[in-house]
Amino acid sequence: MGIGIIVLIVVLAVLFLVIGFIWMTYNGLVRLRNQVKNAWAQIDVQLKRRHDLIPNLMETVKGYMKHERETLEAVTSARNLAQKAIGTGVGAQAKAEGELSSALSRLLAVVENYPDLKANQNFMALQEELTSTENKISFSRQYYNDSVLTYNNKTQMVPSNIIAGMFGFKTGEFFEVTAAAEREAPKVSFG
């Protein structure tokens, strides 16, 4: 009894605190890294949804837009290119999707000249879906970037950066809109 026991208790307590800190920080980092992964998956889901919508849109629009062959073909080919770009890396995919976005907004700008089409129930429903998908893409990108920011802060700030370094947590990459086409696309229709 005496000093030995007290020292032992103090050492155990410190050890307990250190292990507790490592444990909690590690779990926090894992949670954030998973959040980033999920956010990335969400972007993919929305991009795919947009690809799926386009054939329907083309089918509906075709009958009304006899004089817009080029605009229509641009959308279809942009969609096919975007389809092919899946899995070719963030930059390439973002570029292809950007082209698709601008082809689509050109199409929807032209729709203004076709009042019959605008009044078509089927088209109105499709346009709502398309507008919303466009929103969902940008919101999922926004959430992804927010998640990456939180995760990166955690991996770089003291003291959690020590744990991140120890277990090899790498910082995440932001989803920047690299395609010039998308940045400059006249956003006519997508609210």
Binding site: Q35, A39, Q42, Q46, A125, E128, E129, S132, N135, K136, F139, S140, Q142, Y143, D146, S147
Partner: peptide, 16 residues
């Protein structure tokens, strides 16, 4: 009400 449903889903995505 597709529009209402979509808007809620958009905010679900934005808020995570």
């Amino acid at each position: 009400h597709p529009r209402l449903y979509n808007v809620v889903e958009e905010m679900k995505i934005a808020s995570g």
